[in-house]
Amino acid sequence: MAYDYEKSIRPGKLPHIWCPGCGHGIVMKGLIRAMDSCGLEKNNTALVSGIGCASRLPGYVDMCTLHTAHGRAAAFATGVKMAKPEMTVICLGGDGDGTAIGGNHFIHACRRNIDMTYVIMNNFIYGMTGGQFSPCTPTGMKASTTPYGNPDPTFDISKLAIGAGATFVARTTAFHATQIDKLIAEGIKHKGMAVIEVLDDCPTTYGRRNKFRSVVDMMKKLKENAVPVQAASKMTAEQLQGKFLTGVLYKEDKPEYIEQYAKVIAKAQGQAS
């Protein structure tokens, strides 16, 4: 029987704003399946996003949803989680939102290892504003503001998250639809900051400027360049050239922020007369 997404979608809020061929819808479906498989309660789950195409996602899903300002999702979410630790908090957004204007909030949420899950949809571009280059646009590629090819080096979001202190980091792509929900579910269950980077496609503002003839071409590229971490260990550096790793890239048990602050409360109250 086909999976019933309707029960998780807000009545009357579809159709979504995403273009035909956009990968965000695939991620939304994966997220819904993941939340369902974890048994999350609607009243006890907050979806927090920033600004951009990907950040419109929470509006469609029937949970406690907070569509914040550009880049600020992780900082708002930190307030929600701190004030109400019993809630499951999931951040959603794009690569520009999360790593450019929101980069500082992103790395510090990772550093604190606060118990949240951040699903970052990396489509290599600012889609909503019409296709300007982001920190994740590959060097040399075209965007509306890199007409001669992108001169900037790029961020590796997963490496950034690991370096900043996130204790669960995974990567997959919009092509690997069934892996999306598995990794998000694992992230939700992980105690601490979980970052799931989903490489995604934007046919409208990225694909057409970069000679992808169709959405299928973009999906093929995601498929062909994805190397599962297990397979990568048997490959040479040469073979891995131009590829990216998928699956759980990093996992560590480390003190979680809310638990650490609970100790602060206990100490403060022990000292109080």
Binding site: L66, R72, F76, G79, M82, A83, N104, H105
Partner: peptide, 20 residues
Amino acid sequence: IQMEDEIAAMASIIGASLTG
């Protein structure tokens, strides 16, 4: 909570306020 910057501080209080 001491946040990473002034903007984050403002964001955190709005998030916390929404929990009541």
